[in-house]
Design a protein around this nucleic acid. Structure first.
Lengths: 148, 148
DNA sequence: CCTTAATCAGACTGATTCGTTCCGATTTCA
DNA sequence: TGAAATCGGAACGAATCAGTCTGATTAAGG
């Protein structure tokens, strides 16, 4: 019931990338210094996010990253799905895994789909623009003095 | 973003216990045979559920378990909270953990509270009565196997 | 056209948490 | 009083996750 640290960091990274909407290309190292996260971790995150279709990567010297879509079209659900796979509370829902010992007589399985949809809706209701807005407020008030 | 197996099994166990609403006392071993789960696992589950205040345990020979409250007053949120602790996607939300490297300049933290509340609402909207009802339907019809 | 340099992408290692199992303390019935 | 059956907590093993490293790819510069 608690998402992984990688997903949490991914949200922070995407929020930092959204701030560079004007700058066409942003390097992963730059995002690492801004967010304060370890550089290798950010590299792995941008790899997953690019593979998920949220970021567009430009390789080579002077390359970098940019949002594949407008920030308003990216939601929390997209980020979480890109890092942790499909949003499903149980592993039996997606394609009928037979790992469950209850097999066919599972009584609660029909209800998981409803809960999953409600949960995805809650995440999809928060666009990246709102998170970036919060970032601006935080940076405006606190004035980043501790990046270390 | 996917709850633990223990929480999943706890829901199944509670659903099975709700079916014995007429029977005052149900043993953990009986629940294990009904659900098909390992007996020690069910023992640990009932321990957690009793500690969480959802089940009332009666020790001694001929003892057993029974619901501490009516099935209508127990929701998915209660079960998940009893097994996995408070429902929070991030560990920083509840009481300001300082483990996060971002510390106080975290931009997305203010928004997690809203998402957490929405998620808890989605879980709280499913009472145990509906799950027990689904159990009856599943045993009676067993038609809908493919929901995805 | 070649070299250089900077970038992303995938594979490996270590650690933490989760799931499972076992044994002891407690309580009631015969 | 004896004994059986129950819950409760503690220990072991396995799996997943977080973090790190090295290699392949690409664009710019000489």
């Amino acid at each position: 019931m608690r998402l992984s640290s990688m997903a949490d960091y991914a949200v922070v990274t995407m929020s930092a990338a959204a701030r560079h909407c004007g700058g066409v290309r942003v390097s992963a190292a730059e995002l690492a210094t801004e967010t304060g996260l370890p550089a290798p971790t950010v590299q792995k995150l941008v790899s997953l996010l690019t593979r998920g279709g949220l970021l567009r990567s430009v390789r080579g010297a002077g390359g970098g990253l940019q949002l594949a879509r407008p920030a308003a079209a990216i939601t929390l659900a997209d980020i979480v799905e890109a890092v942790e796979g499909p949003i499903a509370l149980t592993s039996c829902a997606p394609h009928g895994k037979h790992d469950c010992a209850l097999e066919h007589s599972c009584s609660v399985r029909p209800h998981w789909a409803v809960v999953n949809e409600a949960m995805r809706g809650a995440l999809a209701g928060v666009p990246l623009t709102r998170l970036a807005q919060g970032a601006d407020l935080a940076l405006k008030n606190k004035t980043d003095r501790e990046i270390a």
